[in-house]
């Protein structure tokens, strides 16, 4: 078990605290549908998110970043671990308290085409949360929808249209409006701009930043694009094969990464300047399967600084410098 990489649990500045979170998916096989193996999608992840900050979660496909976001919101049932939202135990809350908690914790999904119901107007979609929580009269709700549409840069008179009448960028704005109307404290943004074109992506990123400033929102921002994460985050966590391997303030993480995986990841991003080239560390091979993750440090088969101990001992996730956490026996030694 690892400790929480920030201050003491009672810290009023901490909005969300995640302790040793695990999510395993069973793989069923055979006639009797017995569990033949488990995918350890999230395997003991701990972090805390402070009020008003953006914590970015990065990693490649299958590292567990999306599952972490979904498990924190209880959209997936956690296998074990603890999630505290303003000190309240999310994973063990009864249905009444959970309903209250859900108002404060919203999510914006990746695919703006798949996440809106095509058969109802966007106005109805956006007001859905208010209806479920029985907030306001129908006239009041319409007024709130108008207001929120304006806030995300759409016109109030578009509320009677259907999702197919909107472009990808506009749909993502609708997705944000849906979350925003509940006046949440925490918004989990799961790859909110990766399906969008570059020119539209910047519109949505700016919108998210402006809304955060205006409403004091806290974001858990999940993405695979490091440049996007660097742009929007205050602190960044890097995941690999179900584990958090590094967590630090944005500038510390990008300028002085301590984990060899983070360093390789940063070096793999093509430099947007044809006259220079990053000193690239090209990792060999693919990410191993999370069904049978490697023994010891999970990164060791692809790591260029691995030594014998890395094959045997899983490194602890420790605070190597102030506010800079890493899980590596030889952190920063490259």
């Amino acid at each position: 078990m690892t400790t929480v990489p920030t201050s003491a649990p009672a810290d009023p500045n901490v909005l969300l605290e995640v302790n040793d979170l695990k999510k395993y998916f069973p793989i069923k096989g055979g006639v009797l549908r017995r569990t033949v193996a488990t995918v350890k999608a999230v395997d003991g992840v701990s972090f805390a998110v402070k009020r008003g900050e953006t914590l970015g979660l990065v990693g490649e496909s299958g590292c567990g970043k999306t599952t972490t976001g979904r498990t924190v919101l209880r959209l997936e049932k956690a296998t074990s671990g603890e999630v505290l939202f303003e000190g309240k135990d999310v994973l063990r809350s009864g249905s009444r308290q959970m309903k209250l908690l859900r108002r404060d914790m919203q999510i914006v999904f990746q695919d703006p085409y798949a996440s809106l119901d095509p058969r109802i107007t966007v106005g109805e979609s956006i007001a859905e949360g208010l209806v479920i929580h029985n907030i306001g009269s129908s006239a009041e709700r319409r007024e709130r929808v108008r207001e929120v549409l304006g806030r995300v840069g759409l016109h109030a008179n578009q509320m009677n249209r259907f999702p197919h009448e909107f472009s990808g960028g506009q749909r993502q704005r609708i997705g944000i409006a849906r979350a925003l109307i509940m006046e949440p404290k925490l918004v989990v943004c799961d790859e909110p701009v990766s399906a969008l074109d570059v020119s539209i992506q910047s519109q949505v990123l700016n919108l998210l930043k402006n809304l955060q400033r205006e409403f004091g929102l806290t974001y858990l921002f999940i993405a695979h694009n490091l440049a996007v994460v660097e742009h929007i985050s205050d602190r960044v966590g890097v995941m690999y094969l179900g584990k958090m391997v590094e967590l630090a303030g944005r500038d510390d993480l990008f300028r002085e990464p301590l984990h060899p995986y983070t360093k390789a990841l940063i070096s793999a991003i093509p430099s947007a300047d044809p006259t220079t080239r990053r000193d690239r560390i090209v990792l060999q091979g693919d990410v191993p399967s999370p069904i049978n993750p490697p023994q010891g440090c999970r990164f060791h088969p692809r790591c260029w600084i691995a030594r014998d101990i890395c094959k045997e001992q899983d490194p602890a996730f420790e605070e190597k410098r102030k506010g800079h956490w890493a899980a590596c026996h030889f952190a920063g030694e490259f």
Partner: peptide, 23 residues
């Protein structure tokens, strides 16, 4: 110009990204 400015670049943190309005 708009395309290059609207793209976040690793290592160059800007408060606000340039935007190409409309679609």
């Amino acid at each position: 110009v708009g395309l290059l400015n609207s793209m976040p670049v690793l290592g160059e943190v800007r408060e606000e990204l340039a935007v190409i309005p409309g679609t």
